[in-house]
Amino acid sequence: WIARINAAVRAYGLNYSTFINGLKKAGIELDRKILADMAVRDPQAFEQVVNKVKEALQV
């Protein structure tokens, strides 16, 4: 799951650890299995999560 998430978030200019930190700051409580599945099956929803994380990180 970690490898999938890392590959997906790198397309948005983040790395895995920064993304996970941003999830916590944004108050998003999705587990890694769901995030990895979302990255593959629903990229639009995953992009929305990434955008919320970037807002929380102020990137």
Score class of each variant (00 low, 15 high):
Trp1His: 14
Ile2Thr: 02
Ile2Pro: 07
Ile2Glu: 12
Ala3Trp: 05
Arg4Ser: 14
Arg4Gly: 06
Arg4Val: 15
Arg4Ile: 15
Ile5Glu: 00
Ile5Cys: 01
Asn6Ser: 14
Asn6Ala: 10
Asn6Cys: 07
Ala7Trp: 07
Ala7Cys: 03
Ala7Thr: 12
Ala8Pro: 00
Ala8His: 06
Val9Ala: 09
Arg10Val: 14
Arg10Phe: 06
Arg10Lys: 15
Arg10Gly: 14
Arg10Cys: 03
Arg10Pro: 01
Ala11Tyr: 06
Ala11Lys: 10
Tyr12Met: 05
Tyr12Phe: 14
Tyr12Leu: 06
Tyr12Gly: 01
Tyr12Arg: 05
Gly13Trp: 02
Leu14Trp: 04
Leu14Ile: 09
Leu14Phe: 08
Leu14Gln: 01
Leu14Ala: 01
Leu14Cys: 02
Asn15Ile: 12
Asn15Ala: 07
Tyr16Lys: 01
Tyr16Met: 02
Tyr16Leu: 08
Ser17Val: 12
Ser17Leu: 13
Thr18Lys: 12
Thr18Asn: 11
Thr18Phe: 04
Thr18Val: 14
Phe19Met: 04
Phe19Pro: 00
Phe19Arg: 00
Ile20Met: 14
Ile20Thr: 10
Ile20Cys: 04
Ile20His: 07
Ile20Phe: 10
Ile20Gln: 07
Ile20Tyr: 08
Gly22Asn: 04
Gly22Gln: 03
Leu23Ser: 03
Leu23Trp: 03
Lys24Leu: 12
Lys24Ile: 14
Lys25Met: 10
Lys25Gly: 10
Ala26Asn: 04
Ala26Pro: 01
Ala26His: 02
Ala26Glu: 04
Gly27Ile: 04
Gly27Asn: 14
Ile28Gly: 06
Ile28Asp: 02
Ile28Trp: 05
Ile28Cys: 04
Glu29Tyr: 10
Glu29Arg: 10
Glu29Ala: 14
Leu30Pro: 08
Leu30Cys: 06
Asp31Trp: 03
Asp31Ser: 08
Asp31Val: 04
Asp31Leu: 03
Asp31Cys: 04
Lys33Trp: 15
Ile34Lys: 09
Ile34Gln: 08
Ile34Pro: 07
Leu35His: 02
Leu35Ser: 01
Leu35Ala: 05
Ala36Phe: 13
Ala36Ile: 10
Asp37Gln: 08
Asp37Phe: 08
Asp37Arg: 07
Asp37Ile: 06
Asp37Trp: 09
Asp37Ala: 04
Met38Glu: 02
Met38Ala: 02
Ala39Met: 09
Ala39Leu: 06
Ala39Gln: 03
Val40Arg: 06
Val40His: 15
Val40Met: 10
Arg41Ser: 13
Arg41His: 13
Asp42Asn: 09
Gln44Leu: 12
Gln44Ser: 09
Gln44Lys: 15
Gln44Tyr: 07
Gln44Arg: 11
Ala45Leu: 11
Ala45Arg: 13
Ala45Pro: 01
Ala45Gly: 13
Ala45Val: 08
Phe46Lys: 00
Phe46Thr: 00
Glu47Lys: 06
Glu47Gln: 07
Glu47Ser: 07
Glu47Thr: 05
Gln48Ala: 09
Val49Tyr: 10
Val50Leu: 03
Val50His: 01
Val50Lys: 01
Asn51Ser: 11
Lys52Leu: 13
Val53Ala: 14
Val53Trp: 01
Lys54Gly: 03
Lys54Glu: 04
Glu55Val: 12
Glu55Phe: 07
Ala56Gln: 09
Leu57Gln: 07
Leu57Glu: 05
Leu57Ala: 07
Leu57His: 05
Gln58Gly: 10
Gln58Ile: 14
Gln58His: 06
Gln58Asp: 12
Val59Gln: 11
Val59Gly: 13
Val59Asp: 11
Val59Ile: 12
Val59Glu: 12
Val59Ala: 13
Val59Leu: 08
